[in-house]
Design a protein around this nucleic acid. Sequence first.
DNA 1: TCTGGGGTCCTAGGACCC
DNA 2: TCTGGGGTCCTAGGACCC
Length: 420
Amino acid sequence: MSPSNRCIMHIDCNSAFLAFSAAHRLQQGDSLDLRTIPSAVGGNPETRHGIILAKSIPCKAFNIQTGETLHAAFQKCPTLVIVPPDYPLYVKCSNAMMEIIKDFSPAYQKFSIDEIFLDYTNMQKHFGHPVDAAHKIKDRIKNELGFTVSIGISSNKLLAKMASDLKKPDAVTTLYPEEMAQKMWPLDIQDLFMIGPCTAPKLRAMGINTIGELAAADLNLIRYRLKSHGELIYNYAHGIEASLVHTGKHIDMKGIGNSSVIPFDVDDRLTAHQILLSLTETVAMRLRDAACVARLISVSVRDTNFRTYSHQRKIFSATDSTNEIYRIARDLFDEAWQGEALRHFGVRVSELCSNEFQQTSFFDDVHKEKNQALDRAIDSLRFRFGSTSVHRAGFLNSGIKPLMGGIGSTDEMSVMTSIL
DNA sequence: TCTGGGGTCCTAGGACCC
DNA sequence: TCTGGGGTCCTAGGACCC
């Protein structure tokens, strides 16, 4: 089968978080549909989480942007209704949507919490023409789950994704290679997947303002200015992209991390250590849940001036131990911190491998086995009785949550990649 | 009244080895 | 005492996605 004979769909939820919350409220008996008024899912400014995460379509008239502060949004629209995020609900909605979609093909890839790729190649005999099948998918999601999606259809993932963006909400759109000139090339350069706020100005400075102009540009010049990323977006502008719909249940994770803004400025070492421990608890739990061990530990912080820096270390033998990861994270922090007030902390582990053939070192902690047993015992208690059932005495009265970050379960929640 | 959290990938520079 | 170039690994930071 030649690549151009593939049939790929991209299913994209419209205003996902807001739509999920709105649909849920209607199901709970609320008479107001948040999607019909200027409304948004947003954080809590008092805990310094005050940004817009998702907005309703009526917000467009007020020029409210995702990612901007609630304060700025209220300036634009004083009647704006804000609802708090509900991540467990979003995971449920996402999974329910996938259950419907997988009725239409065994080959599907969860790309993010609100986007799925479906390989519809060879499925016509079962569900008909791709456009008809897409309408069936879209309507089933609307009728059964109460929110709308936009579906793009093409011969590869990039064009399918671009297609789903062309018409919103509640729409089905094709963007086959022969339609690029008409449907995609007139679009602004920043509408192309993988051209962000940093690359767009560089292209504009070269006189390239539309996707079509990028497609017509000199590849050597683009490559010279933008290196391999230049070649990538040049190919995308021509609709060239050949990655597979990764069906495997187990997409290998490259890393696991938690990070959080702290509601107050942190300027003492002890508090910083507690925060790192709290972040490490969830990171290590997710690591063990994925049956992995990690070889690279990194810590990142952001100060009150929004300067971010990080410090990382490769360790000799990979680990999944909360205590071990914490000890390294703490050392990394102590080495990097210059004493200024901090507002944001992150702990991340990467270079993962299966814990099956864990290499042991002569120098390993003699308490290693005891530590492992303790980690597993705590994991199972938290699994059975909830994540708040067990935590360390050090957190009592500290004002810091014992377990920070880490949404839901890792089950089948595959990872988004910048390369499709 | 400020500015989230989860990821992936790429590049540059220095260390180190041959 | 002065001198090379290539390859690989490690680390920090930045760009992009949702």
